[in-house]
């Protein structure tokens, strides 16, 4: 009796949700583009390496990560990778106006999806803010990075270039 009670009690505990695993095909990702009137769909970027970055205006490290990712994007375009990759940011502010204000202060040249209901965050089960995924041209998640420190940008860049060159394996 005690054993069945313990078994039942254990079943009631929720199983911790894990983030999207490396090697998994990226979940269907689409949403309205912030500041513009069209929808962005990750499927349309098949054939390109995609860096998917989840952020919010209230997240301290995002104040550093967004401008630095934008600078990295410009560097890579200048270095001869213009059509091989794209950065897509997913904003998780409940109030998109807060995100718009943030982008006025820290403008970026890459598209930003607005996800106020956090549907994509749930889909990707992001573990912290910010979280960055690198998705290869076949749509497979090859790398995930949690948090952001300026010193980690070189690693993000290296992983992105490796993926573009087909050297990264999940």
């Amino acid at each position: 009796m005690i054993r069945s009670w313990l078994g039942g009690a254990l079943l009631l505990f929720p199983i911790a949700a894990q983030a999207v695993e490396i090697g998994q095909v990226a979940p269907e990702t689409q949403g309205p583009r912030l500041l513009y009137d069209h929808t962005i769909d990750l499927k349309e970027l098949r054939g390109k390496t995609v860096l998917l970055d989840f952020w919010a205006s209230w997240c301290g490290p995002c104040k550093q990560s967004l401008p630095m990712l934008d600078e990295m994007r410009s560097d890579l375009v200048a270095a001869g990778y213009p059509d091989m990759f794209e950065i897509i940011a997913v904003n998780l502010d409940e109030d998109p106006e807060a995100a718009k204000k943030f982008l006025q202060r820290y403008p970026v040249s890459y598209p930003v999806i607005s996800d106020p209901a956090a549907e994509l965050a749930v889909l990707y089960k992001i573990p912290t803010m910010p979280t960055t995924f690198i998705i290869d041209p076949e749509g497979v998640v090859v790398w995930r990075h949690e948090g952001f420190r300026p010193a980690e940008l070189s690693d993000i860049r290296r992983r992105l270039v490796q993926t573009m060159n087909g050297e990264a394996t999940p």
Binding site: W5, A9, L12, F54, A118
Partner: peptide
């Protein structure tokens, strides 16, 4: 008694932790 105990134990876990994207209010 065991059923009551189970219900009491479960109520202890009723506070769901905030998701990373729900922490905006904490950062105000």
């Amino acid at each position: 008694v065991l059923s009551a105990l189970t219900i009491c134990l479960c109520s202890a876990c009723s506070t769901t932790p905030l998701k990373p994207w729900e922490r905006g209010h904490l950062a105000e």
